[in-house]
């Protein structure tokens, strides 16, 4: 069972739809015991960092998430919240992976919206079977300027920014795999396999 964390930050349904298409059972939940007992956790998200962190604090999930030991996948805002801090709302985040979230400079259209090419610079079970240079769907105004040693993939929007990070059991992607056609489906499938749900 995959737990999809529900913290009132959008698109949990899209992630569940994608898992349904893979035939993987999932539950959308904010219940700490269900999250702890799941074999893999997906942390999706869209919206603002400040509001999302408040919601996590209200439910105690801000303490739980950094301690999880099963495979964990942050998506979009769910990736950004793994940072130490975010420029968005100047908020302290979960501090799972070193680095900060920064806004794309104003000379670029924001949000970055659409399909961008992701180049992998490290091996990771999360991206097994996906060629470097495939397109994934992005929708973000901020990016996670993570410490280089945790960056497994980048995309270019004015400059290279981290698109995939990995540290121990924590994986995170800036794009939306649930909306990224076949490469996205493969990535979610890999995550379910890492979580032993497939």
């Amino acid at each position: 069972m995959i737990a999809i964390i529900d913290y009132k930050a959008g698109n949990t349904g899209s992630v569940q739809n994608a898992l349904n298409r893979l035939g993987v059972v999932s539950v959308i939940t904010a219940d700490p015991s269900k999250i702890k007992s799941s074999s893999g956790v997906i942390f999706p998200g869209q919206g603002r960092a400040g509001a999302a962190m408040n919601q996590l604090k209200n439910t105690g999930l801000d303490k739980l998430i950094p301690k999880l030991t099963q495979p964990f996948l942050g998506i979009c805002l769910g990736m950004q919240l793994l940072a130490e801090v975010s420029d968005e709302d100047n908020v302290d985040c979960l501090n799972v992976i070193s680095g900060e979230c920064r806004k794309f400079p104003a000379l670029l259209k924001t949000p970055q919206l659409g399909w961008n090419k992701v180049m992998f610079n490290k091996r990771s079970p999360l991206i097994r079977g996906i060629a470097s240079g495939q397109y994934f769907y992005f929708l973000n105004s901020y990016y996670f300027d993570a410490e280089q040693m945790y960056v497994a993939g980048t995309a270019s929007y004015g400059f290279d920014f981290p698109a995939v990070v990995a540290k121990d059991n924590f994986f995170a992607v800036q794009f939306h795999p649930e909306k990224s056609a076949n490469p996205g489906e493969q990535l979610l499938k890999n995550f379910c396999e890492i979580s032993k749900c497939l």
Binding site: G114, N116, S156, G158
Partner: peptide
């Protein structure tokens, strides 16, 4: 290192 790079596709 700082030359403008953008690989976002037109939709």
């Amino acid at each position: 290192a700082v030359s403008y790079k953008n690989t976002l596709a037109k939709r």
